[in-house]
Design a binder for these strands. Structure first.
Lengths: 259, 259
DNA sequence: AATGTGACTGAACCGCGGGTCAGAAATCCA
DNA sequence: TGGATTTCTGACCCGCGGTTCAGTCACATT
């Protein structure tokens, strides 16, 4: 087997591609730029990957499977906790009991792990979020997102049924807020040169979630006019979606009149 | 002036373009598809816009200026409130006093307005977030995002200095969470066929913010181990950003050895 | 009707970038 | 040293899609 392949070529391509994707998006990245960054020629790319989409898919796959694994461990850990200690009730929460604190610590630890994972794949996350619209990967992003939203919503619902969180809150909406926060944070990570204090992030995130969903107990008055009529709710907006598109093709255009 | 232009042509093009951008992203949208959706020919597009980027820029400009205007009104309203009633202190918050409730209502009303605006431009928002990476509009998104993060962080900081919110929280991080929630919600809106109950969304959002940032006062024990060592923080990850890219161009490649 | 004018068409043009492949280069083995 | 073999190069091809423009059409005016 003469002329052994450069052992770093494949890794170098992956790294360069990730950087290029992060800069220009999936569509915008040019294979020649990727190979040039590794000191290779365009043709060399195809010795390792059939297309840039395939390369990206490989990286995304790794990201997704790690995320899935983490998710599974997290679900299992919470399950074990509930079996051992039961679901915290309203009292646990407002009094910040030992077992409530334990659960919060558990969740915080997993939030931190999730943040670490996102940090490691922050560039990929950025591309998935911001540069894969109209590609095969767009749906994948929503798949991951919705999985997370569901997970959060599910555990939220359980606490809700136990009376441990405000019953008026929509679990799905709550989940969206949390996941949305992750998405923006991951995008911000992509622009950072050094790692932020993810541990502090995880703590703040948990605090926000825990305190923000405290059930109403010793509340003095019951918050009547929260909905607030929101003066002048603004007219529906200048333009909605496709108001009067005229015809599918040029065939059916109405002639201005007949001679 | 014979052959008057079809009065709907321009609007139809804008609508069709927005739909197409939302489907395929800025880069992925094809001008011929846009014009075909209006029953026009490709050439007609250039009678109205110099390029698809120009069209998009026009729509984005409208979005941005409405957002800026709303932002200005909001800042002014909060300023007026503070002048009239002062900044709520810790007591106001934990007791949910009248003036605290007023401020929450005010914020909720503006959140609702913002959500309404995002709803009207949900397709544009989706493209800005998810389909403009590597284009001239990418920076614009971050400009808008950062403006909002700063606004939230600023008002957060003020409350923090008054002792009305937890001092341990990073204002910028808090802002990112809120804005991130908006971004994900706007993306989810883009896939909805009918308008959700934005008023409920605004309420939940505010509740989360308000309760989630409650200062520590009558807490029984002072929450010692929140930081949680987070077992096995995971090795830095399989791949970081461009570890060993070899050379800028093919010129400086190291020959494997000399004959 | 004839004519002028501006809206609109669509074939043609062209650059960009993905993908190919004949050949050069590198390495091993005899 | 001279094949044998595999890696890697880079010129080339080609389709896609943005852009152009000569020609056509619809309408107003005369």
């Amino acid at each position: 087997m003469p002329r052994p392949a450069d052992p770093h070529a494949r890794d170098a391509l992956v790294s360069a591609a990730r950087a290029e994707f992060a800069r220009r998006g999936l569509r915008g990245a040019r294979i020649e730029d990727i190979t040039a960054a590794c000191g290779l020629s365009k043709g060399a790319f195809y010795l390792h990957f059939p297309s840039k989409e395939a390369l990206f898919g490989e990286v995304v796959g790794a990201f997704q499977s790690e995320m899935d694994a983490l998710n599974a461990r997290r679900l299992e850990a919470v399950e074990r906790f509930v079996e051992a200690h039961g679901i915290p009730g309203p009292r646990d929460r407002v009094e910040r009991s030992e077992r409530y604190q334990r659960l919060v610590d558990l969740e915080t630890a997993y939030d931190l792990e999730a943040l670490e994972l996102v940090w490691a794949y922050r560039d990929v996350s950025r591309v998935l979020v911001g540069g894969s619209q109209g590609t095969e990967f767009e749906s994948l992003l929503w798949q991951v997102t919705n999985t997370q939203v569901s997970r959060v919503a599910q555990s939220f619902r359980r606490l809700q049924e136990a009376g441990a969180v405000d019953r008026e809150m929509d679990p799905e909406l709550f989940g969206s807020v949390i996941v949305g926060a992750y998405l923006l944070l991951s995008n911000q990570m992509a622009g950072m040169e050094q790692k932020p204090d993810l541990s502090a992030w995880a703590r703040t995130l948990q605090k926000l979630c825990q305190e923000g969903t405290m059930p109403r107990l010793e509340v003095p008055r019951s918050v009547p006019g929260l909905a607030a009529p929101a003066r002048a709710p603004r007219p529906p907006a200048p333009s909605t979606r496709r108001p009067q598109a005229r015809a599918k093709t040029r065939s059916t255009r109405t002639p201005r009149n007949r001679p």
